[in-house]
Amino acid sequence: MDEKIKPTKIIDARGSFCPGPLMELIKAYKAAKLNDIISVYSTDSGTKRDASAWIKKSNNELIGVFEHEGYYEIVMKKTKGEK
């Protein structure tokens, strides 16, 4: 990931199964402030798609999905307030 992007919050959901990492991400999103950057680590490959889709559908910004050794990192920016 770009060194300039510093997550406000990192969720380490490695070892957690679908839908665990997505649920953790949504919880963090609800607690976050506008423009916060949230990063989630996941070993569950379904989360890569699921979390990316959720971020786009909820009108937030998907900064990227990064593959590290043995896990994925999904990074989002909260650009949409709560309804």
Binding site: G15, S16, F17, P19, G20, M23, I26, K27, K30
Partner: peptide, 18 residues
Amino acid sequence: QKNVPNWITMLKNAKEVG
């Protein structure tokens, strides 16, 4: 082995989200 939560725990987690 993979620490998959049981269904009640999953529902509890989901209750925290919505």
